[in-house]
Design a protein around this nucleic acid. Structure first.
Length: 433
RNA sequence: GUGGGUGUAGCUCAGUUGGUUAGAGCACCAGGUUGUGGCCCUGGGGGUCGAGGGUUCAAAUCCCUUCACUCACCCCA
């Protein structure tokens, strides 16, 4: 027996859901294109080895992988960044810097919960073949523009840099093998506080001594500024580079007029994916508590894994479902989802051809028109229009036909008028205005 | 992957210490109104009580298994 279900963490999108999604997507694309980004698409399926070994230990477990009929190991894409890197490696002659956007589903074999699905849409923007920190800054500026356009009020874009983090770890005497653990502990600062982070570092025994512990704790406090960190890592080449990138980014954001309350340097931002090499960033919203709604960073070494020539790249990603969830919970969703503007009701089949001609004329005038096909009672036809929030209903029965007139009912106002045939388009437009 | 919570009508949920034909509101359908949605009135349809097994004279209720949903952790968009 077939049970009418779909796999856990997957979803159907009914028209009202699609309306919100499409609105977000079209506004987002407008912003992307205004910054010179072009669309690019890649297949859902990749060879497993293309994806493996890129995301780190935790990410690796979440890849949907399986054997196809030919015995090849394949995998559903886990994000849009790795497939893009593969494309760049396969097409080395593509003009750079290459700016692209992509809005497409990705799959993660995660346990679903609020704002977290096994299939979800990422909206990615990437700049390939440019190592300037201004490229990273532009991604953050676009993030702000998109969220601002969508009507988001309180959001916080956290910015950090892997080079600074590495230098921070090095100065604190953390061994190279322990850096992943160090970053993971650091990432929990929000949740468990400085002492909690230190506790976790102690249990993993990654800090060599008391002196280093004291230094780290000092850096974890909220008052710590970028200058304090710069002072701490001074002399480590990587650290100095990272600090200078941070200055470029922060000044760039200020120059673009991004409000200071919407972004900040945050030493505790680590990001889980292994492939980041430079600036990293993510956006969080306070309510609903849903984790991050965007995230990204620089991945200069990734493309080099597929080809001999390394290519610098940076990118960021919006979680479409999470954007929808936030907009819904803050009450910005749009209830009237149909695009239909006019419904033509029918009395009996002899009048149907007449209705079809009127519908054709309305459509030619750019009006979205739907014809009711079944000879249901008028009451039922009006209920249908009402349930779908169709604003205008045309009624043409024997009475109207005789006088060459049409009854136009404005469903929102509950008013109706009978007008001559020739005035129809003008009248409809008047009611829609 | 680890640990809680919840599964009863299309939806949101009641259902007493196990006790006869399992209820309500909303939604749906029909009529009141033979050419008029929303408000009101009347009536109606709809349930293998998530699934499988067990205990019992008797199970929505107790026990076991399993599936699904949900929340937290891990991690992340």
């Amino acid at each position: 027996m077939i049970t009418a279900q779909i796999p856990k963490g997957f979803r159907d999108f009914l028209p009202e859901k699609m309306a919100v999604r499409q609105k977000i997507i079209s506004q987002m694309i407008a912003v992307f294109e205004s910054f010179g980004f072009d669309p690019l698409d890649t297949p859902c399926l990749e060879y497993a080895e293309t994806l493996e070994g890129k995301y780190g230990e935790e990410g690796e477990k979440l890849i949907y992988r399986f054997e196809d009929r030919g015995g090849r190991m394949v995998a559903l894409r886990y994000d849009l960044t790795i497939p893009l890197s593969r494309v760049i490696a396969m097409h080395p002659t593509i003009t750079k810097p290459f700016k692209r956007y992509q809005i497409a589903p990705v799959w993660r074999a995660d346990k679903p919960q609020k704002g977290r699905f096994r299939e979800f849409y990422q909206c990615d923007i990437d700049i390939v073949g440019c190592d300037s920190a201004y490229a990273d800054a532009e991604l953050i500026i676009i993030t702000f523009e998109v969220l601002h356009t969508l009507g988001f009020q309180s959001f916080n874009m956290r910015i950090n840099n892997r080079k600074v983090l590495n230098a921070f770890a090095k100065k604190s005497g953390i061994a190279d093998e322990a850096i992943a653990l160090f970053l993971r502990a650091l990432d929990k600062l929000d949740k468990i506080g400085p002492d909690g982070v230190m506790q976790e570092m102690r249990t993993n025994s990654i800090v060599p001594g008391k002196e280093q512990e004291k230094k780290i704790l000092q850096m974890l406090h909220a008052e710590t500024t970028l200058d304090d960190i710069a002072e701490y890592v001074r002399g480590v080449l990587e650290g100095d580079e990272g600090i200078s990138e941070m200055h470029s980014i922060l000044s760039s954001l200020a120059a673009h007029g991004v409000p200071a309350e919407n972004y900040q340097f945050d030493l505790s931002l680590a990001r889980g994916l292994d492939y980041y090499t430079g600036p990293i960033f993510e956006t969080v919203v306070r309510e609903p508590s849903i984790g991050s709604i965007t995230g990204g960073g620089r991945y200069d070494n990734l493309i080099g894994l597929y080809t001999k020539q390394p290519v610098a790249a940076t990118g960021t990603s919006f979680g479409l479902e999470r954007l929808v969830t936030v907009l819904e919970e803050t009450g910005k969703e749009n209830r009237q989802y149909t695009k239909t503007q006019v419904l033509i009701t029918v009395f009996d089949s002899t009048l149907m051809n007449n209705n079809l001609i009127i519908a054709k004329n309305l459509r030619q005038a750019g009006i979205h028109t739907e014809v009711y096909f079944s000879q249901h009672k008028l009451k039922k036809q009006l209920t249908y229009a009402s349930n779908r929030s169709i604003p205008i209903v045309l009624i043409l029965g024997p009475d109207e036909l005789q006088e060459k007139k049409i009854t136009l009912r404005n469903m929102q106002k509950g008013l109706q008028e009978t007008i001559p045939h020739d005035d129809l388009i003008k009248a409809v437009k008047k009611h829609l205005a």
